[in-house]
Design a binder for these strands. Structure first.
Length: 795
RNA sequence: GGUCCUGUAGUCCAACGGCUAAGACGGCUCGUUUACACCGAGUAGACCGAGGUUCGAUUCCUCGCAGGACCACCA
């Protein structure tokens, strides 16, 4: 592309490069390679929304990792996945086409989801391409490293195959339990899909009567509509006020149900009146309590979020209405003592924003409790970057208290591959994609009988052995995380290319955000362990959040979104990449993004361009004998080479980027170039040919090495310049460096000296090219005397 | 409540326990010097607070304060 013709680095230049790269498939994976494999389990973005700035930045980092590893001689597997399963897609379809799956039916709704997905196909990959991301492939397909979609038959087959395997091992069971229920989406959700928000609610003090004595006690609650589900009233064993009530019964207000009173440490003396009504629907800890006490839960809320027959006069009302109504009733009867506004941490469904209710439903579970310790053990074998991020995983592991509910009552997801007939379950053969809700049961499917107590199935034959049975296809689907948690297995061809899988497992790196440690990372470790018994990753790199300029989370409602597409359009991928690296260490802290600062990095790109143009004015001679000055600067960049190797290897691109920028502006351009300019031109023949050649050689050497070191961060501009020098950086190997000789202090001394001369000339009002008298070269810089005198025109 | 991370100029971000605390963006003042006005040269501006360890602390330790995160609890 002729460096001379490029005035400024621009988006147009980038477009030519990235278009070429995208078509050329430069980074295809050679499965017969003898190199070591470096594999990256990239996070598949959801395709129904454009890439946001956070994803853009993290993919920049992943690309730096991939490019560095290629230089280090690895065969790099860096695939792009597209997540197309699950609730986000369904919610998108519901909004876009203004439909409800419960009204238009399953088939039509799935069509809507497909329609939505087809429209959003290429935007995501285009964005990545513009950023210069070196995915193994930009083509979809079954080849190793091809773009994969999580809703493809191949992917869903693997999800089902692993499900079938888990079922056979007795790790999947169905149970009817109280669970997190999303009223909006009409499905059970897992604990990991819940977030907590502070919502204002009212704390109501209500009078209750002790049976027999008629004594009145006051109990506080935020959920008075659940009084009908109260199974016990408790107080703290140390609470003297209520000791005399132990073993007595209390009558629930309005319902007059007899409820036992007991002491229990869960009650806190200081909170409320010290008495707690234990309901079977408040939250999961209540449910645990019911189990512990052997109480039978009463479920008063149905799956649509309305009260049922257990709620007596509240039957048929929505939860909120029921709450208002019962408070009215209590007021009328004079049973409401006091009301107080409090903020209450309320469980919210992450996907829909609906308040979670606790409702009893039969769901499939994957056993996870019994593997907690194993997962802890294998996670110790994984390197976490930064180390402290492992704590997030440990905290989560410690808090897991129930098995993983994996069935969902939704539609656009992997179907659960089961058919049922009474207490029999038909489990098809693995390796195929099944859609039980609209397909006949395969005759060769295994038949299991469900044992009522253990919940585990026992195999008793095949479907063909039960010709009289009518089989009903399972209608539920699998939790999206059941798909996502095998991404690392899918990309290395688990169950489809055993030889390759064995060679490459465990996957080298999982890069991901801290907010999905408890979902994506944890579930992947669990699934990987259940499939292989081993840790599935060597390294895990956890990044923090990308915030707006003011350090706030970006969100549509705040209107502070920075759109990477816009940045790419205005400033290009290289500016975005360089800014990402310069801005901070993403694994250590959150980072704030600002368009202004990204724009500012364009200056650096042009500086690189211009310095290169200058160096290219000279031909690179064969290596001559170098001067002390030349050696000093070469030693320094050799040291940087060594240092950056270590940084890049530990996923630190921030510090090298800072030092490279400094090297470019401060050390190389402002000082080395300025000093040796006259020696390189050598117009007045003050220097010998060898001395002049030494300057030219060193200019080229420093520039080349600079480009090589910068290449992982800025691939487009560095390769463009290197091409001019007949160097192909895409295939360049990391240089073997000679270390330990650099003398930065000496370089600073040179820089100080230069500055002082420039200042003197400026103060004297003379041009920098003019002669200056009376300057003494400092002792330490004696060996550079000839260069310094010539550079400053000292007489 | 528990745990973790982070506190350096207006903003962002550096600095093996030691020298004048670096650089960028933004200010201000000058200036076209054969790669570069997306430039060059200057200039103003900062270590959250209190103890401790040390000859010496921005750096290490303790406590506090502030911001962020995760977990638990919240009747």
């Amino acid at each position: 592309m002729g460096l001379k013709n490029i005035k400024n680095w621009s988006v147009e230049i980038e477009k030519k490069i990235t278009d070429k790269w995208k078509k050329a498939e430069l980074y295809n994976f050679n499965s017969r390679t003898k190199k070591k494999v470096y594999s990256i389990d990239t996070p598949p973005p959801y395709v129904n929304a454009p890439i946001h700035i956070g994803q853009a930045i993290t993919y920049c980092f992943m690309d730096m990792i991939a490019r560095y590893r290629r230089m280090k001689g690895f065969e790099v597997l860096f695939p792009l996945g597209l997540d197309r399963n699950g609730l986000p897609i369904e919610i998108g379809a519901e909004k876009k086409f203004k439909v409800s799956p419960f009204k238009i039916g399953r088939e039509k709704f799935i069509e809507c989801c497909r329609k939505l997905l087809n429209e959003t196909s290429t935007e995501t990959t285009d964005t990545f391409s513009k950023m210069g991301i070196s995915f193994t492939s930009y083509k979809e397909g079954k080849h190793i490293g091809g773009i994969y979609k999580t809703d493809s038959p191949e992917y869903r087959t693997l999800t089902q195959t692993t499900f079938i395997g888990l079922y056979k091992k007795g790790l999947v069971y169905e149970d009817t339990r109280i669970n997190n229920w999303d009223i909006k989406l009409q499905t059970t959700v897992a604990d990991s899909e819940i977030e907590y928000k502070d919502i204002e609610s009212t704390f109501n003090d209500i009078k209750w009567k002790i049976k027999g004595t008629g004594e009145e006690v006051v109990i506080g609650t935020t959920r008075p509509e659940l009084i009908c589900t109260c199974g016990m009233v408790i107080y703290n064993p140390d609470d003297k006020r209520y000791r005399h009530l132990n073993g007595k019964k209390v009558l629930s207000p309005l319902f007059n149900k007899e409820i036992p009173i007991k002491s229990h440490p869960m009650a806190d003396i200081g909170k409320g009146t010290g008495l707690v009504m234990m309901c079977s629907a408040g939250d999961l800890s209540d449910i645990q309590f019911f189990r512990e006490q052997g109480l039978k839960p009463v479920i008063a809320i149905n799956k649509h979020g309305t009260m049922n027959e257990h709620a007596g006069f509240l039957n048929g009302l929505k939860i909120r209405e029921a709450r208002t109504k019962i408070i009215e009733e209590l007021k009328k009867k004079g049973l409401l003592v006091k009301q107080e506004k409090i903020t209450h941490r309320t469980p919210i469904s992450e996907r829909s924003g609906a308040e979670i209710e606790f409702i009893e439903m039969p769901e499939y579970y994957l056993k996870q409790l019994k593997f907690k310790n194993e997962i802890k053990k294998i996670s110790k074998k994984i390197n976490f970057y930064p180390k402290s991020s492992k704590k997030i995983l440990d905290d989560w592991l410690n808090s897991i208290s129930i098995d993983w509910p994996i069935s969902r009552r939704r539609f656009y997801a992997t179907p659960i591959p089961l058919w049922g007939s009474g207490d029999l379950i038909a489990l098809p053969k693995p390796g195929k994609y099944y859609v039980p809700w609209k397909e006949q049961v395969p005759k060769n499917a295994d038949v299991y009988i469900i044992n009522g107590t253990s919940k585990d199935g026992k195999k008793i034959g095949f479907v063909k052995d039960f010709p009289d049975k009518e089989w009903k296809g399972e209608e539920r689907v699998l939790d999206t995380w059941m798909d996502s948690s095998i991404s690392e297995l899918f990309i290395i061809k688990y169950k489809s290319d055993d030889k390759f899988f064995k060679k490459v497992y465990p996957v080298t790196l999982r890069p991901q955000g801290k907010e999905i440690v408890r979902t994506w990372l944890y579930y992947t470790l669990l699934r990987g362990y259940l499939e292989t018994g081993k840790p599935c990753f060597k390294d895990v790199w956890i990044h923090q959040h990308i915030l707006d300029e003011k350090g706030h989370k970006m969100s549509k409602s705040l209107g502070n979104i920075i759109d990477p597409q816009e940045i790419l359009k205005d400033y290009g991928g290289e500016a975005l990449r360089f800014w990402s690296a310069i801005e901070g260490d993403l694994s250590r802290g959150d980072f704030s993004s600002s368009k202004e600062k990204i724009r500012a990095e364009l200056k650096t790109l042009n500086k690189i361009l211009n310095v290169s143009k200058f160096v290219m004015l000279f031909n690179k001679p064969k290596k001559p004998r170098l001067t002390e000055l030349d050696k000093t600067f070469i030693d320094y960049i050799e040291d940087l080479t060594e240092e950056f190797d270590k940084s890049y290897e530990t996923y630190d691109f921030h510090h090298p980027a800072l030092k490279l920028r400094r090297f470019l502006w401060e050390i190389f351009a402002s000082h080395y170039v300025e000093i040796v300019k006259s020696r390189a031109y050598n117009n007045d023949k003050k220097f010998s040919k060898e001395e002049s050649d030494a300057a030219k050689y060193t200019l080229h050497f420093l520039l080349e090495r600079f480009l090589v070191l910068l290449y992982p961060i800025l691939p487009q501009i560095t390769t463009t310049i290197a091409e001019e020098k007949k160097i192909n950086l895409l295939k360049f190997e990391w240089p073997k460096s000679k270390k330990g000789k650099s003398n930065l202090k000496l370089i600073y001394e040179i820089m100080d000296f230069n500055s002082s001369v420039w200042k003197k000339k400026k103060d004297a009002g003379i041009s920098l090219r003019n002669e200056i008298k009376g300057i003494k070269i400092p002792k330490g810089l004696d060996k550079f005397k000839k260069d310094l005198i010539s550079a400053h025109n000292i007489v």
